[in-house]
């Protein structure tokens, strides 16, 4: 097995996330796409750490841990915003939330 397999997997995951973000208008589906892309990035961190040949250097692992923590914060705030928008305009479609005056 080579690093290529894992990196290709991560690239496919990233492309899935991007496609979801661009083709869906539902804010929650966009968030799902973002989570997939973050997962792909974490997979890259772990894959490079695993294949670095120097596993005692924990930078990749720690970066993944911090990235997971930041993703959790991002999901919480993102979903709070979605709930707030839904309360204002009774919709979670991003195309509906186009009024600048609020």
């Amino acid at each position: 097995m080579t690093l290529q397999i894992l990196l290709a997997l991560s690239a496919i995951l990233f492309a899935f996330g991007l496609a979801a973000i661009l083709s869906r208008s539902n804010a929650i589906m966009i968030l799902i796409g973002i989570e997939l892309m973050l997962g792909a990035a974490n997979l890259n961190f772990i894959a490079f750490w695993r294949f670095s040949g120097n596993p005692s250097d924990l930078t990749g692992v720690l970066f993944a841990i911090f990235s997971i923590a930041v993703a959790a914060a991002e999901a919480a705030v993102g979903l709070a915003i979605i709930i707030l928008v839904h309360r204002r305009i009774q919709s979670v479609e991003v195309d509906d939330a186009s009024n600048l005056k609020g």
């Binding site: 990233f14 492309a15 991007l18 973000i21 661009l22 083709s23 208008s25 929650i28 991003v94 195309d95």
Partner: peptide
């Protein structure tokens, strides 16, 4: 869920190009 203006084709195209 509905699809956005870009549609599934546009999203898939962007995904494929990136990939």
């Amino acid at each position: 869920t509905a699809l956005s203006g870009l549609g599934p084709a546009g999203g898939a195209l962007a995904g494929f190009v990136t990939l």
